[in-house]
Design a protein around this nucleic acid. Structure first.
Lengths: 138, 138
DNA sequence: CAAATCTCAGCGGCACTGAAATTT
DNA sequence: CAAATTTCAGTGACGCTGAGATTT
């Protein structure tokens, strides 16, 4: 059953990622948030839009990143509803570490596929996500 | 990032499946257990081996299937450590319903892919799961 | 006023751990 | 005795909902 295999692979990928990130006391949310901050500081709502993480989970994850000294959270003086979250140097260093380990994970994950097969796989998965079939000519 | 796309697709597939199963008050575990029982009654430990569901979660899921009248749980007279779980007619009928709806889900999920592409996708995903590269000739 | 933002409390499904009790 | 089985209590990551308080 395709949906089953997809779920299994998703779980497998998630486990690999989580295991490696745990070596740096990080979770998926932390990586996604740090990565989203490389394009500049943002409010928590904006971070939610960038990452797809729920507003509610952002609060907890930013708390943790803040405690770890990876991000700074300050009140936006221009709009006092907002928190401005910005990546600190330690956070960018952490992101580089996580990025490195995640690249390794991809290789472990796709180790049984040839390079061109990996491309095909990711392309097909993207099409499943998009739910749209690219036009095949006029 | 491949691991990310895999996770997204897994989540997407899981959501679709869960939504449709919910129309019949079922969860993934229920379907997997009912399907595993079609090859005959089994102890809960054996069900865990057949389905990959944890021993601990089997207990709760069998409780629910039992309450719904889909399975019977009786003490094994030959080995009184074991519960013998068997599918009841109502359970088999439920399984047929769930099977039907899951076939539809596959089509919805893979709607953006051509038939031969679907085959390729599932094959590549299986290889990722197996973590082994089939031999490509002598 | 309606809308946006942040925060907190909580839930559901999945995967898992540890430990107790029973039986083989 | 060690090993298998069932059960319970609890954890963790992820993805959510609903509600309250504040501010625009």
């Amino acid at each position: 059953m395709p949906s089953w295999v997809m779920g299994q692979v998703g779980t497998y990928a998630g486990r690999l990622v989580a295991e490696r990130l745990a070596d740096f006391d990080a979770r998926g949310y932390h990586y996604r948030l740090l990565a989203a901050l490389t394009v500049g500081p943002a409010s928590q709502a904006e971070l939610g839009r960038r990452t797809g993480i729920d507003r509610s989970d952002i609060v907890a994850a930013v708390n943790e990143l803040d405690t770890s000294g990876f991000v700074a959270r300050t009140r936006d003086p221009g709009d006092r509803r907002r928190n401005v979250v910005s990546a600190l140097p330690a956070g960018l260093a952490q992101l580089r570490r996580l990025d490195r380990v995640l690249v390794e994970v991809q290789d472990e994950l796709l180790g049984s596929l040839a390079v061109d097969e990996r491309v095909v796989l990711v392309e097909l998965l993207r099409r499943v996500l998009a739910g749209n079939t690219p036009r095949t000519g006029p």
